[in-house]
């Protein structure tokens, strides 16, 4: 079942088109990557999902119904530009933000206690926010994003500003949410980060959706049938007699040969490998799968 459906959404600001006829479907339990360079329109789209701005055309459906203001209480949003009141005490602030999300004071206090212990920041409860390190503040902010246990979590560049340890912690939490069946939208311009976490993704460039779908499917669609081969041998092996095989690149170093070959079918590649088994030692054999980054660049340049 889809939790969020974006239908033909267009948003125009006075002097530029922020989103041009975008449609996306996000299913319950997805970890969905919203990818694109800075200024592509990701933040505008996220703000619409959060009911902060309205689309000029098109609809946004949440759990099959037209998105209304009160549904936002079921969404947790961690904006890219994070901030807390610097002079407010950490605990007080967390309670305030939790109350704004509709929790009563008692319940907020109970849940915050658990989270603060989990993240090991209980000692900071009565400290002012501006006495905290950046990483601490990020933790507090993350807690405030999930405190109302939303079904949909939107994380805008969640890893920026986190040190590797906290990044891992955050990643674990995301996995944990996924296990609970929550849906996560993950917006970033760092393609490789998305690649590791997301099952599905959409690429947005210059206000338009360039492509979307399951990451693995997208990747296999963009496969170029190229393989990387590495072998050891007394002398270079000749593959020119095998039909349908093209050696794109080759080099060698101290008796190790590096090859990039293009093959239309798997069968033809078998001949190459047989040749290597007969005359040398195969060390590495791997299909070249394009990274999301490469796919993105390819899509963008094709679009122009």
């Amino acid at each position: 079942m889809n939790i969020l459906e974006i239908k033909d959404v267009t948003k125009r600001y006075a002097d530029h088109l922020a989103l041009d006829n975008i449609s996306l479907t996000i299913n319950e339990g997805d970890v969905y990557g919203l990818l694109g360079p800075n200024g592509a329109g990701k933040t505008t789209l996220i703000r619409m999902i959060n009911h902060i701005t309205m689309p000029d055309h098109g609809n946004i459906l949440f759990k099959g119904e037209k998105l209304r203001r009160e549904m936002i209480q079921n969404i947790g949003y961690l904006p890219e530009e994070r901030g807390l009141y610097p002079k407010m005490k950490v605990g007080e602030q967390a309670i305030y933000l939790a109350q704004l999300k509709g929790l009563d004071r008692k319940e907020a206090l109970k849940r915050l206690k658990i989270w603060f212990e989990k993240f090991d920041i209980t000692a900071w409860w009565n400290k002012k926010v501006n006495e905290l390190s950046k990483g601490m503040q990020q933790k507090v902010q993350f807690i405030c994003t999930v405190i109302h246990e939303p079904d949909l979590l939107i994380l805008d560049e969640p890893f920026s500003g986190f040190d590797p340890i906290n990044q891992q912690m955050l990643q674990d939490e995301i996995t944990h949410f996924k296990e609970q069946g929550k849906t996560i939208i993950f917006s970033t311009h760092q393609m490789h980060a998305a690649e590791n976490i997301c099952d599905k993704m959409a690429l947005i460039n210059q206000s338009r959706k360039v492509l979307d779908g399951n990451i693995n499917e997208i990747k296999s669609n963009y496969k170029t049938n190229r393989y990387q081969i590495q072998y050891r041998s007394e002398q270079e092996i000749n593959f020119s007699h095998i039909d349908g095989i093209e050696v794109i690149d080759s080099s060698h170093k101290e008796g190790t040969f590096f090859l990039t070959v293009s093959s239309k079918t798997k069968e033809k590649l078998k001949y190459v490998l047989d040749e290597i088994f007969a005359n040398g030692l195969l060390m590495k054999y791997e299909e070249i799968i394009p990274s999301v980054h490469e796919i993105f660049i390819k899509c963008v340049s094709e679009n122009h």
Partner: peptide
Amino acid sequence: MEEKKNRVVEVIITSVK
């Protein structure tokens, strides 16, 4: 101005009109 500068408003605005 403080809210805008600290970007708190980004968070608050998702709960409050």
